[in-house]
Structures are given as structure tokens and as C-alpha cells.
Write a protein that binds this DNA or RNA. Structure first.
Lengths: 138, 138
DNA sequence: CTGTATCCGTCACGATACTG
DNA sequence: CAGTATCGTGACGGATACAG
């Protein structure tokens, strides 16, 4: 009973159908119900890459490749996976432009826009309180 | 070069001496320099337990056992470790009252107080945007 | 260009037993 | 009461190869 606290839905999800059916979704965590709102928020905007991605596309929509250029350290797999997760949580929208070569643009949704102020305050807090641990120009 | 992005200091820390020498610190991550302030903030207040702990002691100092009572799902080990980490980052203070049985109280520092508004806004955002995924009375 | 598939390592976290 | 020690597991993330 104890360990059911955080990960309520680890196996197959019956009550909560997947928002997106593309294969990459197999790899997505299926935690979708929380007892704590902060935990839910952390899951949606937390992790190693999501804040970066949101931050990069906050001013203008970007194509897959463009995001990757701005985030040199991310692997294709992780970029894809994080974008899918953000899409499933309705923080970013994905627009496919048919043709050859393919073009896909990612943009913040309204909900996505609404997290930017939170990230900003997080950034401000860190700049103020953790200045000694941050080296932005490296 | 790529993977040096996040974990800059994984091995021995030379420039940043550990704040606390107690043995549990062996198990603490030694990431102490960041290129991104949000990442620094996430590291300091993120994770599975830190927001919970901060939230529980935000109104009044609590003893180790009291925190554990309020967080039934956490193991002793994790509570100890997270408290050490928060202490090292100066978000909580640890006050030992000698005697038998031992008593230790944990309280928010000033820096700790300063993260509460951020957690609040995170909570408000989730309550608003992720209401369908949250079941607070369970 | 925008992904998918597969293999693999590391680390956060959990369970349990033990201690001053 | 407030920890420590030890072992185990799975999720997260990285590297590389392949595909429409």
C-alpha cells in the first residue's frame, strides 16, 4: 500500500485512455492520477529536459531540428520522448507540414504559456539564492 | 563533451567542500555547478520528497518522527537523505536537543521560506490546469 | 528531416535489518 | 527516537543503428 503513493498507474491504463496512440507512447510513464498537485506539476514540467524545451519555444514555434540545435546535449530519442509527453499534457502543440523533406513545428499551447511565469520565478529564485552554484556563461 | 551538460561535478569535489561531513553525505549527489538556473532550482526543490517535506514544516518546526507520521509513504532512509540534502542547500535547519531519547527538530530557514511561494504557485497552477488528474482526498 | 528500435549503464528510490 | 548499512529494482537517460 505504501508504494502506491506516487505511481498509481504503472501497468496498463484502463480508465485513462492514452491521448496519443503513436508508438513512442509505449515508453511514456502512465502516472496520471496524483494525490498531490505539486507532484502532478513536477511530473508535467519537471525532469531534465522539459523546462529547457518549454523555454526554447516560448517566444516562437520551432522545428524539431531547431530545438535540437538549441539543446546540443539532448539526444534525438529524449527530445522526441519529451515532446510527446509535453504534447500529451497539452503543453505544446505539434503541427506537421507534409512534403519532402518533412517539417514539424512545435509551439506552446495556452496551457504551455501558463507555465512560463512559473519557470521564470523558478529562474529568478535560483539566480538570487543559488548564484554561487550557477555559471551561465560556460 | 555532451554529457557534461548536467552533471559537471560527479566525482570528487575540490572547489566546493561539503557543507556537512556526516556519513550520509557520501550518498548525496555532488552536482553543485549548473549552467541553467532552473536546473539548479529543480535540483534543490525537486525530486519525489523535497516539496512534501518543505510543505509539512512550513508552518512550524517538526521532529523527525513527526515528519514521518505526516508522510506515511516515505522510508526512513529517504527522509534522512532528503533532509540532509535540504540542510546542505540551507533550506532547512537541523537542531539537536541532547538527552534521552534524542530529539531533533527540522525547520525552514529563511531561504527555505523563500521557496514556499514558488511551491504555492506550482500547486495553484496544477489545481487549475491539471484538476482532472488530481484526487486530493484519497 | 523527423523520427524508431534496441541495448545498456547509472542512479533514485524502496525494503529490511540493525544501532547509539 | 533518530538514524545507518546493505541489497535490490526499475525508471531515466545515453549511444548507436535504422527507417519513411
Amino acid at each position: 500500500m505504501a508504494s502506491a503513493f506516487l505511481k498509481i498507474q504503472t501497468g496498463e491504463t484502463k480508465t485513462q485512455p492514452l491521448i496519443c496512440q503513436r508508438p513512442e507512447y509505449r515508453y511514456m510513464p502512465k502516472k496520471r492520477m496524483y494525490v498531490c498537485p505539486i507532484e502532478a506539476a513536477m511530473d508535467v514540467i519537471g525532469g531534465k529536459w522539459k523546462p529547457h524545451i518549454l523555454w526554447k519555444i516560448k517566444d516562437a514555434p520551432l522545428r524539431f531540428g531547431a530545438i535540437q540545435e538549441k539543446l546540443p546535449a539532448i539526444s534525438q530519442k529524449m527530445l522526441t520522448r519529451q515532446l510527446r509527453a509535453l504534447e500529451a499534457d497539452s503543453l505544446v502543440s505539434r503541427t506537421e507540414y507534409p512534403g519532402m523533406p518533412p517539417r514539424v513545428e512545435y509551439a506552446l499551447t495556452e496551457r504551455g504559456q501558463s507555465v512560463i511565469p512559473i519557470l521564470s520565478s523558478l529562474k529568478d529564485w535560483a539566480d538570487e539564492e543559488l548564484a554561487d552554484q550557477i555559471n551561465e556563461h560556460e
